[in-house]
Amino acid sequence: MIRTLLASLALVATVTTATLAQPDGESFADWLAGFRGRLEASGATPDTVASMLDGLEPDMRIIERDRSQPEFVRPLWSYLDIAASDLRIRNGRAAYAENRETVDAIAAHFEVRPEILIAIWGLESSYGEIPGNNDIVRSLATLAWEGRRRNWAEGELIAVGHMLDNGYATRDQLTGSWAGAMGQMQFIPSTYLERAHDWDGDGRRNIWTNEADALASAANLLGRAGWRPGQPAVVEVDVPESFDFAAWDPGQSRLVSQWAVLGIEPARGEWSADLLMQAARLDLPAGGSGPGFLTFPNFRVILRYNNSTSYAIGVAHLAD
């Protein structure tokens, strides 16, 4: 899908704990005392509150990571070099071959594209190999204290309380990414409660060590978000120099046939008759001089997983 893009740019950042400043305002202890009351008011049992908050300390590295997420700060071409590296493609083919029967059954049940599931699996946890070992309670508490996304982070911590109280997970299972996502498909706690799926019928929605449950949970998320079977997510296009960029609205959808009239052509091949009748938006993530993409409704479904244009293009590219 993606042609050879501009050469990768080196992204070098040296961060030490000593350079990380404490957020302005209240201390972590003050935030923790206030949140303890809010967690108790949500209905969490005393044992759950104690297991989550007793002795909890912030992780200052989390704040720096939150401010420098690669899919948001790396140039697209640099991000794609990593997202669809030769190693990730090779490992993805091997993971699909090893789990093909299960993956295809899940994809058919939820009517999603199997390669998209594998690609998300690859980007989220290297096909289950690297799900993360951060304590997500500590991560979410640090983000809540930092304040940029306090309401969101506190809501996720309350969701953790529900998970523990209902026996969906044990406290020591709650490990994952620095951003508070868990398991092989990196679900945040509220998404786990809403979308996690017990594929093998054993009564547990085990997204940590059960590949089938993890993949089915991701498929359920995509399906419930509106995935359209048999339709594309994104197509790379050539944008002519004559294109009126001043009149371009990135939120505007047009039929592909209308984009074609404006000189937008596929980077490879020709438009199919079916595709010409579908609606798409023109996305120029690197500006008018960079690569162009027509993005379809399925692209915005992938954004429900991670609201980053680079991530969604990376998933579609790796899937292809």
Rank of each mutant, 00 (worst) to 15 (best):
E98G: 05
L80C: 02
A95R: 01
D86S: 13
R74M: 14
R90F: 08
S85N: 07
E71I: 02
R88K: 10
R100E: 05
Y79R: 04
G92K: 08
R74L: 15
E101K: 07
N91M: 14
L80G: 02
L87G: 09
I82S: 02
R90K: 14
A84F: 04
F72R: 04
E101N: 03
G92A: 11
W77D: 15
P75H: 10
S85Q: 06
E71S: 10
Y79D: 03
E101V: 14
R93I: 00
E71G: 07
Y96F: 15
A95K: 06
D86R: 12
R93S: 10
R74V: 00
R90V: 04
R90T: 11
W77G: 11
L80K: 09
I82M: 10
G92L: 03
S78F: 08
Y79W: 01
S85A: 04
D86P: 00
A97D: 10
G92P: 05
W77K: 13
R93Q: 12
L76R: 11
E71H: 11
R93N: 13
N99F: 00
I82Y: 03
G92V: 12
I82V: 14
N99K: 05
W77N: 15
D86K: 12
D86A: 15
V73N: 08
I89D: 12
L80D: 10
I89V: 14
L76I: 10
A97N: 01
R90P: 02
S78Y: 03
Y96S: 07
R74N: 12
A95E: 04
V73D: 00
A84H: 06
P75W: 09
Y79K: 04
N91F: 07
L76V: 10
F72M: 04
S85E: 08
D86V: 02
E101H: 10
